[in-house]
């Protein structure tokens, strides 16, 4: 067991946990941030995607000890007012069905737009290939990413 401070969504939390405990379970079971989901435990499905210093990572395989001083962002902290262009585009395109994978999808898409504000189809394929949607909302996810990209691209 180790005592560690971690920075999540702009707040510092003190957690006592096995240093090998994946960040996913730290977030969910210790901090009560349940927006990030468990899908496979092996970085195959992307349901657990969060940002570590702005980079999309699979929190189900990221041990607490590997987080270091990094800044973590989860779906709950993606935007202050819940109005990230992707969140609005997801609503506009009525993307989710069951919705379980969508936090991970949005976090992957947000990392993509941060590094590539005008992604081509191939960029979307590459960035989103790690996120499974069993309901099959991929067509709408693609459309929503393009809508959000247009909006962010239009900003000065």
């Amino acid at each position: 067991m180790t005592n560690k401070n971690i920075k999540v969504n702009g707040k510092t939390h003190s957690v006592e946990a096995d240093p090998k405990m994946p960040l996913l379970w730290v977030l969910r079971d210790l901090l009560g941030l349940t927006g990030t989901k468990f899908g496979c435990g092996a970085a195959h499905c992307g349901a657990c995607t969060v940002h570590l210093d702005g980079v999309a990572v699979r929190s189900c395989v990221l041990p607490l000890e590997a987080v270091g001083d990094g800044t973590i962002t989860t779906i709950e902290g993606l935007s202050e007012k819940g109005d990230h262009p992707l969140q609005r585009a997801w609503i506009e395109h009525n993307v989710p069905q069951c919705g379980y994978c969508q936090a991970g999808q949005i976090m992957s898409a947000a990392a993509l737009l941060a590094s590539s504000p005008e992604p081509k189809d191939e960029d979307i394929d590459t960035a989103m290939a790690g996120n499974i949607c069993r309901c099959g909302t991929y067509q709408r996810i693609r459309a929503a990413i393009k809508t959000a990209a247009k909006e962010t691209g239009a900003k000065p």
């Binding site: 941030l33 349940t34 927006g35 990030t36 989860t74 779906i75 709950e76 819940g82 992707l86 969140q87 997801w90 609503i91 009525n94 993307v95 989710p96 069905q97 919705g99 969508q102 936090a103 949005i106």
Partner: peptide, 13 residues
């Protein structure tokens, strides 16, 4: 639109 969509995209569902 799906009634739970706003909660879903904010991680509140």
């Amino acid at each position: 639109k799906g009634v739970d969509v706003p909660d879903i995209v904010h991680g509140k569902a």
